[in-house]
Computed example of a mutant assay.
Amino acid sequence: MLKLSNRFWFVLHGWLSLPVWLLFCFVCLTGTIAVFSHELTWLTNAAARANNPDNLPAMSASLLVEKVQQAHPTADVGTVMVFEPYLVNAVVFTDHDKPQAIAYVNQYSGEIQSVEQGITFIGFMRALHGWLMFPWHGSYSIGYYLVSGMAVLMLGSLVTGLVVYKHFWRAFTQPKVRTGQGQRTLLADLHRLAGVWSIWFLLVMSLTGLWYLIQAIFWHADIDIEPHPPLVSAAQLPQPQTEIPIPPVSFQQALDKVQQLYPDFSPSYLHLPEHNRDMYILSGGGDHVFYDQYAYQASINPWTGEIASSRSPEQMTMLQTLTYIADPLHYGTIGGIWTKAIWFVFGLVLTGMSITGFMMWGRRTFKHATKVKQAVDIGEQGETA
């Protein structure tokens, strides 16, 4: 009877690990595409383009909300999302015949170019890369754990690769790619060369990925990194009436309040009150390069106009700072289109490294399995003789 050696189980374990490497490659590839998700949206969806042939100034988000409410009188607007200047603003609303819809409103002309229902390409790529489209069960998603857990694999690959590749720094000054010594040698040279030149990128992706993993654990454990925006005090609400009262503070007045608080405020995610005790929660970017477009936030009481809470980089704790600098570093948005192009190129390199690494592992595993089989066959032939 054939006895299975420890080596056989090691090889089998390697083959069973194949899905992990496929997942890693998929995460790298989708992340690379996600870097240019806004640009790809502009390229593939004409309704998302903010054409401005007359060089008009951008309208206030409150005017865009009015445009949507004029076109859909029974609509209940909940959110306004502001993207790059070349993309339209997205006004999210509900209506009697639309559980949730997004109006693409040109911020220069005020024209509603399209009303979409369903996920956008930007949202799709974010969900595909971030949590593999797995559903969220309350405060956690298995897909989010799977993706962020890849950071441990990436960091381990980086450390072990540098240990195995002696004098790796020579690849900076003496790059070596041998094309005439077979496929195995070529793959190994390309893999090592790409790895050395991508050390900084691997480190950035690993560290930001580890933070996403820690963040997921916090969410799952109901540990708040920052306090939730406050609710309007019941004492500040008007007396009960037969009709639903309209808050005296308009959306535009709330925007003006935030602009006075943060002169460099650039709106990005603007939440309108959903009920009488809800507030205007206005988030945006500012003059800090390494912070994302949600780093500045203010909650405006719609009944009194007071600023109930605020947040800026100067007020953040260490964990909050990590939260708001992780995305710009992970997706390369810190320097606009140029840094996004660099992140895109190195994302392709990282995807290629995962493929070449798997190809080399597969060749070694297949070669060893063939030798084991040949040895077993020879042994069986000897026993028969």
Rank of each mutant, 00 (worst) to 15 (best):
L2C: 00
K3S: 07
K3P: 06
L4V: 15
N6V: 06
W9A: 00
W9E: 01
L12Q: 07
G14Y: 04
G14L: 05
L16V: 13
S17P: 01
L18E: 06
P19K: 06
V20R: 01
C28Q: 10
T32W: 08
N45K: 13
A47N: 14
A48M: 15
A48S: 14
R49W: 09
A50L: 03
A58E: 15
S60C: 07
A61H: 03
S62N: 13
S62R: 09
L63S: 14
L63Y: 09
L64A: 01
L64R: 10
V65S: 04
A71N: 13
H72A: 07
T74S: 15
A75N: 05
V80N: 04
V82T: 14
F83S: 06
Y86T: 14
L87W: 02
N89E: 09
A90Y: 10
T94H: 11
A101P: 11
A103T: 07
Y108S: 07
S109G: 05
S109L: 14
G110N: 09
V115E: 11
I122M: 14
M125R: 02
L128E: 04
L132F: 10
M133K: 06
F134T: 08
W136Q: 13
H137K: 10
Y140N: 03
Y140G: 05
S141M: 07
S141P: 02
G143L: 07
G143D: 07
Y144H: 12
S148Q: 02
G149P: 03
L153K: 02
M154Y: 11
H167Y: 00
F168N: 02
T185S: 08
A188M: 08
L190R: 04
R192Q: 04
G195Q: 04
V196M: 05
V196Q: 04
F201S: 05
L202F: 15
M205W: 12
M205S: 11
A216I: 04
W219N: 15
H220C: 08
A221H: 12
D222L: 10
I223G: 08
P227C: 06
P230Q: 03
E243C: 00
I244G: 00
D256S: 05
D256L: 10
D256T: 07
V258D: 01
Q260A: 11
L261Q: 14
Y262A: 04
Y262F: 15
S266K: 15
S268Y: 06
Y280K: 02
Y280A: 01
L282R: 03
G286E: 03
Q293Y: 09
Y294A: 09
A295T: 10
Y296W: 12
A298V: 09
A298M: 08
I300G: 01
W303E: 02
E306M: 01
E306C: 00
E306L: 04
I307P: 01
S309K: 08
S310D: 09
S310M: 10
P313Y: 00
E314L: 08
Q315E: 10
Q320L: 00
Y324P: 02
I325W: 03
A326S: 15
P328A: 11
Y331W: 12
W343E: 03
F344I: 02
F346Y: 14
V349C: 08
T351A: 15
G352C: 13
R363Y: 11
K367T: 09
A369N: 08
V376Q: 13
D377W: 11
G379M: 05
G379Y: 08
G382C: 00
T384H: 09
T384I: 12
